[in-house]
Design a binder for these strands. Structure first.
Lengths: 244, 244
DNA sequence: TAGTGGTCTAGACCACTCC
DNA sequence: GAGTGGTCTAGACCACTAA
């Protein structure tokens, strides 16, 4: 019953329930990887029929927030966006090696946030923020050079961490050290040419085409967490879509 | 009742009904833009409950085959893939002009089908097929140069058509003259550099980066209809996705 | 064997569109 | 007012998982 206490009563019940479940996930009551209560329990707690619970859960499965497993239960999906960037790039030149690329932090600084990142993060332009420069490697070959901006108030723990302790994945670090969980991301792809510095880092000729991916990473409640711009060699880029 | 006569009885009923509705759309009994029977009628004809009909229709709405309109009915969605290519490209340099690009057919020939197109179309490589060369223009500026391959048996009517009669959109032509309805398409995006001929057609320097879009267009039942490869200036390319 | 989600039913009432 | 899809209920039985 109390499950829907804070929900907007003008919405359909299944929508109210959807929002209530998202809240539980956002506040961490139900954490990534955990099973949520059974459909019968949710129905009792929310004071609705099981069919209505099913519709709310259907929505969240479609949104990628929950996973259902027949006979076992319904689980909060563990997001793995760090991997998914690489659906844009051929790794190891067509090998089916699905190994995770390595990452190296090239630099960390507190600097004045550029306008585009500030707008995406909801900061005032020029306000200080944390900047990370990062290189991602496929074996020995440079694959992506990344410029990452984070709001300094919520990511202070990262400033105390030694660069070699960052590891290959950032989002698990955000979650463990700063309590920020990345659930979705908006990306914009464009094509540019490499400047001298980027060319050197990526092992390309200056002026070689590069694919640019600008990403705003967001939490379950869609608040912006991180802005980044990644560049990689255009000749290794490949992206598949189905359109309707 | 007869609605599910040809369906696979091992599937769940809502899946059988989904397939049956797709069949009606494929065979043209229910054409694009038409309303399909009401949920109550479908339930009666299929011998299932209305809730089961709703689930089947939910699926097809999610797949983009049907549109529901509250109070009016459920309609076969009119696909407009010809437009959707342009979500990849900025038109008129950031203007919000949503005008449809013009198209000009540069050439038509019956030629031996290249391996990649043949594989996509399910033809034997080297078998004769129809090739169209086409230029798409944003106002006066060349936007895309396209190489299009069609199976000659099903597209014979296009060989009799004067080039200036093709108009700006091909898919309505396929439907009207050849009875082929394009419902979905698989696309692969890569980046290449323009060769001399492409550069001339697009008004670029040879060696300038271009975005390459390879598309297999398919019918409601997923059978391949057309293969095409489009190239456009990389500096006008922009693509947005949300990932999870 | 007990508990989970997956499928299905047969109703009910509501909100919207069109005549 | 008649007909449409939208929401919701309260059950039923099945398929799968784990102990």
């Amino acid at each position: 019953m109390s499950l829907l206490a804070a929900a907007d009563p003008r919405l359909a019940r299944y929508q109210q329930l959807r929002d209530a479940i998202v809240s539980k996930v956002v506040e961490g009551t139900w954490a990534a990887g955990d099973a949520i209560p059974t459909e019968a329990e949710l129905a009792r707690d929310a004071g609705v029929a099981v069919g209505t619970v099913r519709k709310a859960v259907d929505l969240l499965v479609a949104e990628g927030v929950l996973d259902r497993v027949q006979g076992r239960g319904t689980f909060v999906r563990r997001p793995s966006l760090d991997r998914s960037l690489f659906r844009f790039f051929r790794l190891s030149d067509g090998d089916d090696v699905r190994s995770l690329p390595r990452a190296r932090i090239l630099g960390r600084a507190r600097a004045s946030c550029p306008p585009q990142a500030a707008a995406a993060l909801g900061l005032r332009p020029g306000k200080p923020a944390i900047r990370l420069d990062r290189l991602r490697l496929d074996g020995e070959r440079p694959l992506l050079v990344e410029e990452i901006w984070l709001p300094s108030d919520r990511f202070a723990p990262l400033e105390a961490l030694a660069l070699h302790e960052f590891g290959d994945l950032l989002y698990p670090l955000y979650e463990r050290l700063c309590g920020e969980v990345v659930a979705v991301a908006d990306e914009t792809l464009t094509v540019d040419v490499a400047d001298a510095g980027q060319a050197r880092t990526l092992g390309l000729e200056p002026g070689a085409p590069v694919v640019v991916i600008e990403r705003v990473a967001r939490g379950y409640d869609r608040h912006p967490i991180e802005w980044r711009r990644s560049r990689g060699p255009a000749d290794r880029f490949r992206y598949r879509v189905e359109i309707r």
